[in-house]
Structure formats: structure tokens, C-alpha cells
Simulated assay, not measured.
Amino acid sequence: MNTNPRGSGNERLRVLVVDDEPLARRGLELRLAAHGDVDIVGQYGDGLSAIAGLGQHRPDLVFLDVQMPGIDGFETLRRVPASEMPMVVFVTAFDHYAIRAFEASAIDYLLKPVDEGRLAQALSRARQARSEQQAGSHCAHLLGLLGELSGKPPLKLDEALRPDALEQLRREDRLAVRDGQRTIRVDLRSIRWIDAAGDYMCIHVDGDGGQARTLVLRATMRNLERQLDPRRFPRIHRSTIVNASRIIETRPHTNGECFLLLDCGQELKLSRSFRDRLPALG
């Protein structure tokens, strides 16, 4: 059923779809076909191609996957000239802390698998923003999002377009993790190590008086990996991430494995398959 039939007199909405999963792109294409005023002008599976497509097609609206290999959604946006910045609806498989920022700073966000009702709502918001001539200010909203993600005030335009802007965000001093209805913000310097326990993550941090404290959150290793700088927080085992600055000693083990001693006295195993994550031990 067309929610906005062709020929209704409304200005058409030129849309770009960016997602590294072909099935996700196809699913969104089929759902968008039900909206008669929407023209999909391009589909891309990676950030670099999407950047070229943005310059070529100059769409009104982009459905942008946040988690993509290589250049993720945020890095893709950083490389788009401010004068060419379209309206953006973020698409994500993870209902984590950034959702709050999406709600505040983007046109909308969609969780995978995409719900038809939520898609219709996102399109409605985009149409309204354009009709109220708010699309031109959307670049400022996205800059505000970058600031929100870092826990700092919104970046200015010249700051956000600096080559090292994304890198600066990854050097921030807090990790925000969505746990059910709450958001936990953790001082990165206090993290000793993180390990997985089934569907939960255990974040071991410094407590009062030097005592250990463990935060148990419903999250995934993959989710946390994507939020942390891999140079500061390398994955050393399929179920373990360590704060590299807390390592004070290494001890060889069998079959190319090592034991890492942390400054808190905890000893962790470095798996051979993850040895290259700590170049100093290569």
C-alpha cells in the first residue's frame, strides 16, 4: 500500500541507501517502494563508495548503516563536505547508548530489522524537516551528534572537518554502555580488563580504596570493541579485552601464547591468534 501515492503533488524525496549487507539494502528497498514519493537514486555497500555517490547524486536523505567494515557511518559523514551534507537516518543493529544521541541530533534512527511503521515515521520526519526548510541545518545536528557521542559539547564545523576529528573522539575518557533502560558511563582509565560471560559483559574497574569492582552489563564483545580504540584496548582472547596501559609484565607460555600481568595483580592469557593485537610483543 502506498502511503504517499505518486502524483500527489508533493516534492519527491531522493534517497540513498548505504549498508554493507546486501539483504539489508534489499529489505529497505522493498519497504521504501511502498512510499510513492521516494526515489532511490543509489545503493552502496561501503563508506568510500557512498561518499562518491553522495557527491554524484546529491540526495535529500541517506539511510546510513552505522556499523560497516573499513569506514563506518560516522567516518563516512566526516568525509562529506558540509555543503553537501544530506539529511540522515541512522540504521543500526545495536540498541546501545548512541540511540539517545540519534534521537536528539539526527532526523531519526532505525533498528534492524527495520519496522515498516518506524520507517514511515522516519520518512515523515524527513518530509517535515524539508518542508520547514530545516534540512539546511541538519549538518549542525550531525555535528552535535559527534559531540554527544564524545560526551563533550558539540563540535564546531571547522573542528569536525579536521582530519583528526574522528581520532579525537576515540581518545575520549569515558565509555558509555546501554544496559536495558539505563546508560552506564565508565572512566576508561579505571578499566582493568573486560571479559564475556554468556550474553553479558563484565567490566572490571578500579573501585574505592583500590579495590576491584565489576560492572555486569547485557552487551556483546563486538559492540564494546567498536566503541574502544583497539590500540588502547586490544582484544587478547575471543572473550577478553585488556587496557594496554595496565600491562606491566609478559610471560611466555606454550604454543606462542603469553600471560599478561596487570598492575592490579590480575593475570590474563594472550591467545596466539590475537598476538598481533599487541605489536610490542610481535
Rank of each mutant, 00 (worst) to 15 (best):
H141W: 11
Q134R: 15
A126E: 01
E132T: 10
S137C: 09
L157E: 15
L145T: 01
S137P: 00
C139Y: 03
A126L: 01
A135K: 04
S124W: 03
G136L: 11
L123S: 05
P154R: 14
K156C: 07
L145I: 05
S131T: 05
A129Q: 01
A129S: 07
S137M: 12
A126Y: 01
R162N: 07
L146Q: 09
A160G: 09
H141Q: 14
H138I: 09
P153E: 13
R127W: 02
D158G: 03
A135L: 09
S124A: 15
H141L: 06
L146I: 14
C139W: 01
S124F: 04
S150M: 11
L145Q: 02
Q133S: 07
L149R: 08
H141V: 04
S124H: 08
A160Q: 03
Q134P: 00
A126C: 04
S124K: 08
E132S: 13
A140S: 14
A140L: 15
K156S: 14
Q133G: 05
K152E: 13
G151F: 05
A140R: 12
L161G: 03
C139T: 02
D164R: 11
P153M: 13
P154F: 10
L161Q: 15
R162P: 00
S124L: 08
G151T: 06
L149I: 12
S137E: 15
R127H: 06
A160E: 03
L161P: 00
A140W: 04
P163M: 12
G147I: 03
G151V: 08
A140V: 14
H141E: 08
R130D: 00
R130Q: 05
S137I: 07
R125H: 04
G151Q: 05
L161R: 15
P163Y: 13
G147L: 03
L161S: 14
H141K: 13
Q128T: 10
Q128A: 11
D164K: 08
P153R: 14
P153D: 13
G136V: 09
G136I: 08
H138D: 06
L145M: 13
Q134E: 09
Q133W: 05
C139E: 04
L161M: 15
G144P: 05
D164L: 07
R130F: 00
S124E: 13
L155T: 02
A160C: 10
A160M: 06
A135R: 05
H138P: 03
K152Y: 06
H141N: 11
A160I: 05
L155A: 07
A165L: 04
L155W: 08
L145H: 02
G136F: 08
Q128L: 11
S150D: 13
L157R: 15
K156E: 12
L143Y: 05
R125N: 02
G136S: 09
L145R: 02
R127S: 03
Q128N: 07
P163S: 14
H138Y: 11
C139A: 14
H138R: 13
A129K: 00
D164P: 02
L146G: 07
H138N: 10
L157Q: 15
P154I: 13
A135H: 12
R127A: 03
A165D: 02
S131F: 02
G136T: 09
H138S: 11
G144Q: 10
R130Y: 01
R125S: 02
L123P: 01
P163W: 12
A160F: 04
S150H: 07
L149Y: 07
K152W: 06
P163G: 11
